[in-house]
Design a protein around this nucleic acid. Sequence first.
DNA 1: TGAAATGTTGGGGCG
DNA 2: ACGCCCCAACATTTC
Length: 475
Amino acid sequence: MTQPVSLVWFRQDLRVKDNPALQAAVDFGSVVPIYIKDTSIKNEEQPGGASNWWLHHSLQALNKRLNGHLQFFEGDPELVLTELVDKFSATGVFWNRCYEPAAIERDTRIKQTLKDAGCAVASFNASLLWEPMSIRKQDGGVYRVFTPYYRKGCLQAASPRYPMSSPDRITYSKVDNLGTSLEKLGLLSTLNWADDFSNHWQPGEEGAASKLSEFISNAASDYEDQRNIPSVKGTSRLSPHLHFGEISPNQAWYALIDAFNQPDNKHLDCYLSELGWREFSYYLLFHFPTLPTENFNQQFNHFSWRNKDDEFTAWCKGKTGIPIVDAGMRELWQTGYMHNRVRMIVGSFLVKNLLVDWRKGERWFWDCLLDADRASNAASWQWVAGSGADAAPYFRIFNPVLQGEKFDKHGEYVKTYCPELANMPDKYIHKPWDAPQNILSHAGVVLGKNYPNPIADLKASRQRALDAYAETKGK
DNA sequence: TGAAATGTTGGGGCG
DNA sequence: ACGCCCCAACATTTC
């Protein structure tokens, strides 16, 4: 007696533990796990280079966990799925939900097609603590401010689902592998740009679990104080793992609560609320699908960005002459990651001091970040620009010198990524342009030669931003 | 999850 | 001893 066959369509849930769709397929019968590189989505929504590097290695890890049974395809998922259902005589298809506007539209259509073809189809929530459609204000409206969204909307709603364990035993269907090879998906860049990534990261479920336990044993107990120091690994660094679903937020949420084993701990609450910000980004994207491309606050449609190409390029390359900005941009390029505090600093500098449209920054991050995520990236850039929901007010302009002196007191972070400044004394590490000539020459720094002169005067560009924003506000 | 400008207070140096 | 000034330290307001 053969079991019914079902497909598990993996997308952003590249794990075996706490995977509701996989569990459903196991309960249903024998399983064919598949991954489809979706070529039907628009170019600008295709994952960037760094993200694809991660995806490649994550798929490799998942395939290993599935004993090599993962089948890889490329194309329009609707066509691929209907064809596979037919070829494998599958009677069930299961997946975990995605929440990006284009994915929702695609999946809704596919679900109908497969149902019409007589398949059992079910989708599940595997990547959010609270799904966007379930959180509403008392009057039925949509929250626009984080704190009431999180405190009233989320924390007073039903608790997040407790994580499931791995399926006891996965029975794989005895079918041919009709897919292509992982390599043929072409996710790896031909440049050697990504070579260094693997020194910093281990994509896959195992890497995610070890990041989580490392965070719990080393950093979580002092999270609120340490998370802002970029030279210290005081954050969880789970973001790329969460993005690809190698770990669910539910697993992180409950692991932290269990580890602290006491309510009302400020470090615990602080970390959980960061997971809350991730939820809020998805919530905003769901209810405002144009978030990645349109100003949430439409007053900004009239904003006169300067958009100077040479300045934008200097920012991308980490050659602005502002040490902590350059260090951040170089960390991004070299490691595919940037510390959260520094993301705010470089973002504020680009958008406010240089007056470059936040969407240019969004695009660069999209291509460079291993944790590039449509929801978080869009919501965070709009937050920085002041054009978003519950955004930073227009007058909040980070001073990169003060931020450096506050959060990187001895310049350890700067010196890691800007080695040409390695011998600068603490006093001038964040403002080499103010250093007396003898100190510069003693440190081997020649401004304009081996380290750039600052491309913007911080005081004047701050005033320029205030004027520009004041003008927009008046419109 | 800002920074700068402006205002207030109080200790200490000094004539 | 007293008034005056300076200025650090902190608080408040403004952008």
